[in-house]
């Protein structure tokens, strides 16, 4: 797809965004603290500005595309193409996985997963090396953030699990089991 066609599509999407944003601004409630110029004034102006600029982009790209087709010129495909997009998508999915996991499995395991997954995605390393890098890297990041910088990171389920092992069998049973409705009697 040519640059002009891409810009045309982006311009249309931005016009839609401008309309939605303006409508959203129109629903901003008024406050008794403000004068006749309220909290919706600047957002509405920005919505209009985005709409006008997007329209100019659409017109510019439409004229450029028409001129290009009239001259019969073809633009070369963009660098990288779908291969690079696929890698980028993989990298993004790894990030999403980290976000989904970090609070449940804890920081140290989540960061080990992230390091291993990115290294595997980039390719060229043996599994043993990847595992070693992930484990050493996770310990390094955990020590750096939690111990050196004293920044709180998610602990996951590990403290609960540890507590259940450390408590007496009866206590651990009560920790692991839900209270029975008949237990009080």
């Amino acid at each position: 797809m040519t640059v002009a066609k891409n810009d045309l599509m982006v311009g249309v999407v931005l016009i839609a965004l401008a309309i939605l944003y303006w409508l959203g601004a129109d629903h901003i409630p008024n406050s008794i603290l403000e004068g006749s110029i309220g909290a919706d004034a600047l957002p509405k102006m920005l919505g209009v500005a985005l709409g006008i600029l997007s329209l100019v982009l659409v017109l510019e790209s439409f004229l450029a595309a028409r001129a290009a087709s009239a001259e019969g010129s073809h633009e070369s495909p963009r660098e990288g193409g779908w291969r690079t997009h696929r890698y980028a998508l993989g990298m993004l999915c790894i990030g999403i996985g980290y976000v989904a996991l970090v609070e449940s499995i804890g920081y140290i395991c989540a960061i080990a997963y992230l390091l291993a997954a990115v290294t595997l995605l980039a390719g060229g390393a043996s599994r043993k090396v990847v595992i070693g890098f992930a484990v050493i890297g996770a310990i390094f990041f955990w020590a750096l953030f939690v111990y050196v910088l004293e920044i709180r990171q998610p602990k996951g389920f590990w403290p609960d699990l540890w507590m259940s092992f450390r408590s007496t069998p009866a206590q651990s049973q009560s920790l692991l089991q839900l209270p029975s409705p008949h237990s009080a009697s």
Binding site: M91, I94, L115, V118, T119, A125, G137
Partner: peptide
Amino acid sequence: RYRLAAIYA
């Protein structure tokens, strides 16, 4: 691969 992984982390 190691640099990108470390920076992402």
